[in-house]
């Protein structure tokens, strides 16, 4: 137990350092961006009709003339105190914006994460256990096809087919247009989230399947599977008893490492589906020089990804007897 606490403590220190580095990197990139926040957000024409005074006020609002170091330290100081600042674009506290957006995205990403995980593991195990046979060839062909398909393109394709041609699903947004917030049901939300989630799942499956297949194929060629065959175990029994057990550890790593891919994919997919999620907010924050929002989103998403990997590490300790028993003896 003490060992595990120590392990978690070390990881948490690492997480603080990581978040610090990630926020600094995001900030530096943003400061180096050639985009002029005034021009992007106010517009060239409107800017021309404004007085010097008004422009000075706006420059002050977007923090154009504040030295970068001061801006970053100011943000950091507030952040440590628990204040993520106010979004310049949405004119709401960053925590509120992120909270809302995350809620929307979480549905999407959780759905895609579970589907791609379960489906990826299943397909990977089937392909790996039947390496070189028809099932493997079909699954591998599908994965290679999907891997070489850009997520945004697939999103457009699904949109065209299911929303435009067939009219089965809405073409965008997370709730019906013009509906009262109180009248939106869970079914409405799921209905709107379906296509984006499907896109994310389809692209997410390929990666997990290919990695699982490789592990499974290694397992099927291992000494212990040979011995199981020599001991008269049937092929299904070998896959279920030895295959799944041994593929579990890499599968855990894969599953939690895929969070970052789902996150990255959601940025593009939400953009295509005009889905008001975290990914879309990140794009607007980046393009609109909304520094507090961008840093907030960066830190929160990095924390989620890190949290996922931490969970994977901790699960390892539960699943792998070498770690479990090894730690207990110490």
């Amino acid at each position: 137990m003490k060992h595990r606490l120590l392990f978690t403590g070390k990881k948490l220190i690492r997480m603080v350092l990581l978040l610090l580095g990630v926020s600094l990197a995001a900030f530096l990139l943003m400061s180096a961006s050639p985009l002029d926040p005034l021009q992007t957000n106010v517009g060239q024409a409107a800017l021309g009709t404004m007085s010097q005074e008004q422009i000075a006020k706006l420059e002050d609002y977007w923090g154009v003339n504040t030295p970068p170091a001061e801006r970053y330290l100011g943000w950091l100081g507030d952040f440590v105190r628990g204040d993520m600042g106010t979004s310049l674009l949405y004119r709401q506290p960053v925590s509120t914006v992120i909270g809302q957006r995350l809620q929307n995205s979480l549905w999407l990403m959780a759905f895609a994460w579970v589907i791609s995980g379960v489906l990826g593991l299943t397909l990977g195990v089937i392909a790996g256990a039947n390496r070189g046979r028809l099932a493997d060839k079909l699954i591998r062909g599908y994965c290679l096809l999907i891997s070489s398909t850009p997520a945004f393109w697939l999103a457009l394709l699904l949109l065209v087919i299911f929303s435009v041609w067939l009219g089965l699903f809405p073409i965008g947004l997370s709730v019906p247009i013009g509906a009262d917030a109180s009248s939106v049901t869970l079914a409405d939300r799921l209905y709107h989230a379906f296509l984006p989630a499907l896109t994310l799942s389809i692209t997410g499956v390929a990666n997990i399947t290919m990695h699982t297949r490789e592990k499974m194929a290694d397992i099927m060629e291992s000494d212990y599977v040979l011995f199981a065959r020599a001991g008269g175990e049937s092929a299904p029994s070998i896959v279920l008893r030895h295959g799944l057990r041994n593929v579990a550890l890499p599968a855990i790593t894969l599953q939690f490492a895929s969070i970052i891919e789902i996150f990255g994919g959601s940025v593009l997919v939400e953009q295509v589906f005009s889905y008001p999620g975290l990914g879309q907010a990140a794009v607007s924050a980046g393009l609109g020089s909304d520094l507090p929002l961008l840093l907030g989103i960066t830190v929160v998403s990095a924390a989620i990804v890190f949290g996922g990997n931490l969970i994977a590490d901790l699960l390892y300790g539960v699943v792998d007897p070498k770690i479990r028993r090894g730690a207990a003896k110490r």
Partner: peptide
């Protein structure tokens, strides 16, 4: 195989690393 003809392999790598010895001898 496994009942009338049995194999005794080289070493520990022929045992499933994530399964306890008992179930491996009993083969499920």
């Amino acid at each position: 195989r496994g009942t009338e003809i049995v194999l005794v392999p080289q070493g520990v790598t022929y045992l499933d690393p994530l399964m306890k010895v008992g179930p491996q001898i009993r083969k499920g």
